[in-house]
Amino acid sequence: MTRKRIADERPVHRDALKTGRPGAHWAVPGALFFALFALVPLGVVIYLSFTTWKGLGDPQWTGLTSWQELFRDRYIPQSVWIMLGLLVATICVQLPVAALLGTWAAGPQRNRAVLASIYFLPLLLSTAAIAIVWKQLMDPNFGLPAHLKELVGGTGDFIGTSHGALITLVMVGAWQYIPFHMLLFQGAVRSIPDVLYQAAEIDGAGRVRCFFSITLPQLRNTIITSLIFMVVGGLTGFDTVLILTMGGPGRDTTTTPLLMYFEAFRSYHFGKGSAIAVLLIVVATTVSLLLTRLSGYDRMESTKEGV
């Protein structure tokens, strides 16, 4: 009762009470927390890239020294090429397989549902666990290549060769992430209207024709979503590489994020590590922005228009 009386006396408050809308102050704790632990570090990394810091004490302002080192270091362009190469290989393997499997699993058949639930299993393991399991599987002495060397030849140290290490990384990525992308495609295929296929059937289109003329175009938005996940993951992820190959043999699988980690937490060159981090942030954000812009994903055109 009392609240109502006050409200009657003050029309402004009365309106606020009537609509029951939250004031902006409701957002303050969350926004402040996010700013402190996500946006502040973003600023700090730029600051640190202009300093020399060994991890202890205070960072010393040294201007462009770290950046000059960065541009002189020939391992940096090398790491960028390795990262991009792995990314392209990952996309070429994962996208088609995930799209095909997802389309297949979207069918109503019982056996497909059973198999799809087995395909799901890698999603139950953490990245660390997966990398550790594959490390054992590829072990030069007790792993699969070692036991198969009578059959296929080689020394058994597949992961110790430059190409072998790169192939292993792409393979492990496929094992870990295709189930996820498959789920995306499965859901998307199920939401394609049946009338499209019925119409195609009347026109006499076969299964292959249906896939390329109906399913794939209808999956456009899902393909772009998948691509963004792969690109962002490929440009920033490094736990798998760290555990599986440690960037080796030599530096043949040292991607840019791994190089950043080594510079900072192994060599204690936090300034240069920060400069690499800034480079990484710029590249990753630009690429994902470009991807959304080029594909028109930000406009989110519906593939259902005209149906």
Binding site: V40, L42, V44, V45, F238, P257, F270, S274, I281, A284
Partner: peptide
């Protein structure tokens, strides 16, 4: 990307 801010 959270990976890129581990140093700061």
């Amino acid at each position: 990307p959270s990976q890129a801010v581990i140093i700061p």
